[in-house]
């Protein structure tokens, strides 16, 4: 699976930033677009978090015992 770029924290920030847009710029396009963007950014953050956890687990399994 394609590795999601960036860090989970950055994607969470992108998701939260849409709330500011929704509260201060209401409109016919922004209202449906901002929640969808938030959701997509959150999905990216969670996916990246799973990938990081998997990579840490794999690295740990392949490390020779000290």
């Amino acid at each position: 699976m394609v590795r999601v770029p960036g860090e989970p924290g950055v994607w969470v920030f992108v998701a939260v930033a849409q709330m500011i847009v929704v509260f201060f710029l209401p409109g016919n396009i922004i209202w449906p677009a901002a929640p969808i963007l938030s959701l997509l950014a959150m999905i990216a953050a969670v996916t990246r978090a799973y990938q990081d956890a998997e990579r840490l687990r794999t690295t740990d399994e392949h490390q020779p015992p000290t």
Binding site: P8, A45, V46, A49
Partner: peptide, 13 residues
Amino acid sequence: PPPPLPALTRILI
């Protein structure tokens, strides 16, 4: 022991 996951990663998964 396996290295601890960052807090945000642990919360998200």
